[in-house]
Design a binder for these strands. Structure first.
Length: 740
DNA sequence: GAGCACTGC
């Protein structure tokens, strides 16, 4: 059965696209050079048309055309559209591949996929021997995987000798991007040609406000201001829907409440200028919302009613809502930044970049001319907003990425051709972590364990724990937990206090059912209980568990099982034995992956991390270990959350003896020494010298107790306390605004 | 005593 959607297949329609008149030149440009940049705003037709042109021009004779997208939905919908335009069944000539869904066949010559999928393919076939053309789309978004692919393609294929190695024909690489930073891209790719295609979007006029100035980067005033602005738009502008950009769920719900109150008070006979508008439909939109509720956003509003969608950044790229004519932009976004000095990820509200503001504004010009109302001043724009968003590669923990590069035989990960290099300490931190997990050896070479680890779509530490259970034959304990930890939060905690109590009670019962005192075991218990239930979705509802999240955890678990099974088929898979009870076995396996996340009770409820940063942390109240005092001096935790305090979440008590031998490893490697390991030019001789020096240093064995004493004296890094201070300030302002 | 955006394998 065809999966293609049935919209009107007008061949003439594609000829009207701006790209059509450049067809011949574009095909020529692709054949002329190894790298080509194609730029054009949305609506130029580059994503759907270029692969078809290349197909018609015979580029599929030697291999496939692969097109990457940063998002699953985009890969799927574009493939559907192109299959339809080419009048073929989806999955035959035209197909797509995303995680859990491979819709391709032996006949597939035009393949759309996510950037992560192509990266996986390169691991299996570094020469990309099946492809004649690779097209990287949406490169301006700077997703981590696309950035890595870009560097890999440059490194592998800019050298003609290497590029033809194992290939019968040269590979063509097309990089597609919005018209941003094309000079930088071109010089990165050896001054390759740039092909510009005009877009077909409508004009959007932008105005600045007066409310948020350069002094307000830490304030929450923007919530009230966007509400005021949206209300003004509603009463003074002609018909057309409104899209409001805010940063998160609670904020959005608060704004919706305020807007609703205001909208209630309107007398439509006098207050609203456009008399064809007789009401306002207010709809929140954020990622964790139930899918059916999300779907309502796309319904056209009833006649004479104006729709106002209050959304997170999800509406900036992932979801397109038709009929939006007005944008109200708060100028802020919630962004996850990795801090390598404290080894923590901190989620913060920060001003958006200018390019992101333009992206938001562009959402109003998809079907007709629109208007964008920015609540911040021109001065805020100039002084507080950076030109471009810091690319993901400079903001995230890199251990998984560095392991991938190492597995591809790229030893010198510091001088890898990054479009924007991450700070060296980010790379060194990743190397150090990989070394601690035994994924790489002291010379920076991938170990057998590392080669197995790279196969799993998980954090290296979690993978190590999984492999440990597998070698002991008890992977059933940990695979579900690993799956649960790699999907969105499965515990629902509603906003209403009564329901909150009810949900908490259910969650505590689930923790007790698993034996209590171990949050990892609770996850396993939830997984198993739901799976064995007759009506899993009903079970979830009763227990305040996120059914969508749990469903994806089931798929992840299945995938992890398959990968593990494949690895176990190979020889050399380690087999160990353990005698002791199940609870200890479970926790000891966790230790083998979480020994970098160990904390020891310091004073009262305060714990101190043992990772070398010595941060003071608290157990999160959602944990079953919260307020448990007895016999609880050593714990491991899955992650850290910086809000009013530095909290550790998903916690499990351990015994010091289980990590005693592992902890010194955390302090064994000097990061500055590692920088030489990362570089290719280090000779074996130097290496031996280094290793001898290291061995000499280790002579007086580092005692964990010594390290502990040192750490407890050290203060938390300023960044964490800054983040906390900002959080508390926002909280205070929020309370003040509520009181008023 | 709880305030986490989005995406991907």
């Amino acid at each position: 059965m065809s999966k293609s959607r049935r919209w009107d297949p007008k061949d003439s329609e594609s000829k009207l696209l701006p790209i059509y008149q450049h067809k011949t030149k574009l095909i020529q440009a692709v054949s002329d050079s190894a790298f080509l940049i194609v730029t054009g705003e949305t609506g130029s037709g580059k994503t759907t048309q270029l692969p078809q042109y290349l197909h018609q021009a015979g580029f599929c004779k030697d291999g496939k055309i692969g097109v990457t997208q940063p998002r699953r939905v985009a890969a799927i919908t574009v493939a559907q559209r192109v299959a339809h335009e080419m009048q073929c069944t989806l999955g035959r000539d035209v197909g797509y591949q995303v995680r859990f869904d491979d819709c391709t066949s032996e006949d597939t010559v035009v393949k759309y996929m996510t950037d992560g999928c192509l990266l996986r393919e390169i691991l299996a076939d570094p020469g990309l021997s099946q492809y004649s053309v690779i097209i990287l789309d949406e490169v301006h978004e700077r997703s981590l995987n696309t950035d890595i692919l870009l560097g890999l393609l440059k490194k592998i294929f800019s050298n003609p000798a290497k590029a033809t190695k194992g290939r019968a024909f040269p590979l063509r690489v097309v990089v597609m991007s919005a018209t941003l930073e094309t000079n930088k891209l071109s010089s990165f790719l050896g001054n390759c040609p740039v092909f510009v295609i005009p877009g077909r979007t409508f004009s959007v006029t932008c105005t600045f406000g007066t409310a948020i100035g350069p002094k307000d980067t830490e304030s929450t005033a923007y919530v009230k201001e966007v509400v005021k602005m949206a209300f003004d738009v509603h009463t003074s502008e002609r018909a057309g829907d409104i899209l409001v950009f805010l940063t998160g769920q609670s904020e959005i719900e608060h704004a919706c409440d305020l807007l609703f109150e205001k909208a209630e008070s309107i007398d439509y006979r006098y207050d609203v200028q456009d008399q064809t508008v007789e009401g306002l439909l207010i709809l929140p939109l954020y990622g964790s919302m139930p899918t059916d509720q999300q779907r309502q956003i796309f319904q056209p509003p009833p006649p004479r009613i104006r729709k106002c969608v209050v959304a997170t950044n999800i509406a900036a790229t992932s979801l397109t809502i038709n009929g939006i004519k007005y944008i109200v932009d708060s100028g802020f976004v919630k962004q996850l930044n990795h801090n390598s000095r404290v080894g923590m990820d901190i989620l913060e509200v920060v001003p958006i970049s200018k390019s992101e503001a333009q992206q938001r504004a562009g959402r109003a010009g998809r079907t007709s001319a629109g208007k964008c109302f920015r609540i911040y001043t021109k001065e805020f724009w100039e002084k507080c907003m950076p030109e471009y968003t810091v690319p993901e590669i400079q903001r995230t923990s890199l251990s998984a990425v560095i392991l991938t590069l190492k597995c591809l035989g790229i030893h010198d990960v510091i001088r890898f051709p990054y479009l924007d290099s991450p700070e060296e300490r980010f790379i060194l931190e990743a190397l150090k972590q990989l070394y601690q997990f035994d994924a790489i050896d002291r010379r920076g070479r991938v170990t057998q364990l590392g080669e197995m680890m790279v196969e799993f779509p998980l954090h290296p530490g979690l993978t190590r724990a999984v492999l440990k259970t597998a070698s002991l034959g008890c992977q059933d304990l940990l695979l579900p937990v690993a799956a649960m930890l790699s999907v969105e939060n499965i515990f629902i905690r509603p906003g209403h206090p009564d329901k909150q109590k009810e949900a908490d009670k259910k969650h505590r019962a689930l923790a007790a059912k698993s034996g209590g005192m171990n949050d990892f075991a609770t996850l396993l218990c939830v997984f198993q209980s739901c799976k064995s239930s007759d009506k899993p979705s009903v079970w979830c509802k009763e227990n305040w568990i996120h059914w969508r999240a749990l469903k994806s955890a089931f798929s992840v678990e299945r995938q992890l099982c398959e990968i593990l099974h494949r690895l176990q088929q190979k020889k050399d898979f380690p087999i160990e034995t353990f005698d002791g009870n199940k609870s200890e076995l479970f926790r000891r396996c966790l230790c083998s992956g979480y020994f970098t996340n160990v904390a020891r009770r310091s004073v009262g409820k305060v714990f101190c991390t043992m990772d070398g940063h010595g941060s003071m942390v608290h157990i999160h109240p959602s944990s079953s270990l919260f307020d448990q005092e007895a016999e609880l001096n050593w714990v491991i935790f899955h992650d850290v959350l910086v809000t009013s305090r530095v909290y550790i979440r998903t916690v499990c008590p351990i015994r010091y003896e289980w990590v005693k031998d592992l902890l010194p490893k955390l302090h064994e490697v000097d990061v500055f020494e590692l920088s030489s390991v990362a570089r290719e030019e280090v000779t074996d001789e130097e290496m031996i010298k280094w290793e001898t020096r290291e061995a000499a240093k280790r002579q007086p064995e580092v005692s964990t107790e010594d390290v502990m004493k040192k750490l407890e004296k050290r203060n938390n890094e300023a960044t964490v306390s800054d983040a906390r201070a900002r959080y508390l300030q926002r909280k205070q302002l929020r309370q003040q605004s509520k009181a008023l």
